[in-house]
Design a binder for these strands. Structure first.
Lengths: 196, 196
DNA sequence: ACCTGAACACCGTTCAAGT
DNA sequence: ACCTGAACACCGTTCAAGT
């Protein structure tokens, strides 16, 4: 009577997102079932359908929150450490939240079906493009900014998949190696000659 | 009696891989169930366990075949068109077999559990590193070759996820845009000054 | 050896019903 | 409005049995 929750949960949507987020980060996407999420939130297996039309929509909400967090981390990094720090923040986000990052970029979500997801992702990428714009103007600069983004994104993915052998560290801390790899590139179209 | 298959299928393993590959490319990873694969191969839902200990092992076999195909495509491209063609072949492979590429790099497979998978992947990456070696020697060169790989890999992923707006094409064919993006990068450590 | 059918414990989703 | 329990058609995996 006193210890049991209210009949109307009242705050079920955030509770479901919290439970689903924990499942995702601890057990991975495959273990993230609607039924288990409901169980952890203390409701029947059917209650989530009041807040999400299907499993995909729950996943889309998790990914959307992920893009918001990534965008914030990148803007903060850029404010303190400039462009270079922005790229490093991207990689750090991927490595700190591997399952979330995979959900955001793994293609498991029908991106066309989830407008909020697409918008939150686009916002992040526009922030990156704007930060690059002063250095990389004009048509060639736009291609270069895609290359910069691809570089940072690819490095994140390869590290996540443990595809970069530990010998590549050559005694350095991982962050230092990331800096060195990102710094080993120059943009052909850069207005002043600037590092990544 | 004459149209029905033999009791002992005889060639079940390749038949399963073929059916699974078709399922993967047409319906995506989520639709690739062992039971449906068995159905398409014309055997009971249980027969696949004679050839694969579990679903993950079937997926690993598909991914392993994918790495072999990617390696072949890259070597062929390199023989005809050099380093640049190698990178373009990487991107082309990803775009031509999106679901296969996602399986290979999506982190859905417990890579540690599948030795053949890890080896086939490593072979591909060693081929890339060797092709880069003449231009990028020494410690800084090794970081640069990781950057080159990350660039190609990231561009593939972003194109696959349709994260690069169609406006980025600016009227060009996709292949041409890929060439321009890859070509917009210089390696700081390159021995002669060489494009990507 | 290789294949089958029944069984178990899971899914996502739908539906009729309760408060 | 919001939640529940039963039901349906799926899974992966295991087991006892057939040829």
């Amino acid at each position: 009577m006193s210890t049991s929750g209210p009949y109307h949960h009242g705050d079920l949507r955030p509770a479901l997102l919290r439970a689903a987020g924990q499942l995702l980060e601890k057990q991975g996407l495959a273990a993230l079932s609607l039924r288990e999420t409901a169980r952890r939130a203390g409701v029947s297996h059917n209650a989530p359908y009041r807040h999400f039309p299907d499993r995909g929509s729950l996943l889309a909400a998790l990914a959307t929150a992920g893009f918001a967090a990534l965008g914030t981390a990148m803007q903060e990094a850029a404010a303190h450490g400039g462009l270079r720090a922005m790229g490093e923040a991207y990689v750090r986000f991927a490595l700190e939240r591997p399952q979330r990052f995979r959900l955001m970029f793994g293609g498991a979500l029908p991106i066309a079906k989830h407008a909020a997801l697409r918008e939150s992702a686009t916002r992040v990428f526009e922030g990156l493009a704007q930060a690059l714009a002063p250095q990389l103007a004009g048509p060639a600069g736009r291609d270069a900014s895609i290359a910069a983004w691809a570089l940072v994104h690819g490095l994140s993915q390869l590290l996540l998949d443990e595809r970069i052998a530990s010998s590549a560290l050559r005694g350095r801390e991982r962050d230092e190696m990331v800096r060195a790899v990102l710094g080993s590139i120059r943009f052909a179209a850069a207005k002043p000659q600037t590092p990544a």
